[in-house]
Write a protein that binds this DNA or RNA. Structure first.
Lengths: 143, 143
DNA sequence: ACCGAATTTGAAATGATTACAAATATTGGC
DNA sequence: GCCAATATTTGTAATCATTTCAAATTCGGT
């Protein structure tokens, strides 16, 4: 991935770029695994040995505030992050813990910014839990 | 609320009733505030002075496993619980932190038990974030 | 190069949740 | 009703993600 793409993405969201912010954003733009803070920290640590976990926390919070990333609270143990901020739904596999992207229902996409029973909506989240295709196949093998 | 209603609800979900389980279930059936573990513990503590926080945790986990309650992971700080297990959406106010019930979109209700791109869906969650009616009115007053 | 502001860092604190083992309550067989 | 096996509850201690905070570093402007 070109450095410029990452750089421009930050600027577009009114985020002043820094080495650390570029690194985190690049990770989000390359990996659609809905990483946790720790996944990001562990992945970047070798390349940026002075990187601090706190910086990853700060950076992601900043990204979310500027609309450059999405925070997912599907897994009750840990917050995850998504660099894809276009409207889409998620699927959490109860067996392997992976989170997959799914299309969001059209009706839900249009709710942002509207009025729902007098309440102003700023975010919409839609997610499913269950067993994913891969795990289903694996389970069929062994049973 | 009649004790029997609570009792029967536990039996219906294959949960062996106990004093503590009845107390927690009664609280969930009376209060639709989507309480946290601590809210429930604090509310029941005066009436059941020997009640332990751990028991509230255990009990709620048991309820969720048996489909007698729903776990909400909307607020990233804390898990909340809902005694209403019929399909409905939620609205979290970013200002006051309250969670409101809203109708779930029809299209989403029918997804449970179905197959989505090869994945089996067991739970559907839909929620909104924004500013609630009450807070909007309050804000208008002061501004 | 220098200064003030913004950013990063790491250590310590916080707080929700879990693990666990001891205490208590419940159940079924006699 | 009594005893033993089982299930449940309890409280403390541990865990672990996240936040706080103050010192260190970096950055931007002059």
């Amino acid at each position: 991935m070109k450095v410029n793409v990452v750089y421009e993405n930050l600027l577009k969201c009114d985020i002043k770029p820094s080495v650390q912010r570029m690194a985190v954003m690049e990770y989000l733009m390359k990996h659609f695994t809905h990483p946790s803070v720790d996944e990001i920290y562990t992945a970047l640590s070798p390349k940026y040995p002075t990187l601090s976990r706190t910086t990853v926390y700060n950076t992601l919070k900043l990204f979310v505030k500027h609309g450059a990333a999405q925070m997912l609270t599907i897994d009750e143990k840990m917050t995850c992050f998504d660099g894809d901020v276009t409207p889409h739904a998620h699927f959490l596999c109860k067996e392997c813990g992976k989170i997959y992207d799914l299309p969001m229902m059209d009706a839900a996409k249009n709710v942002v910014g509207t009025d729902m029973a007098g309440n102003v909506v700023t975010d919409v989240h839609q997610y499913y839990k269950g067993i994913c295709k891969q795990c289903l196949e694996k389970d069929n093998m062994t049973n």
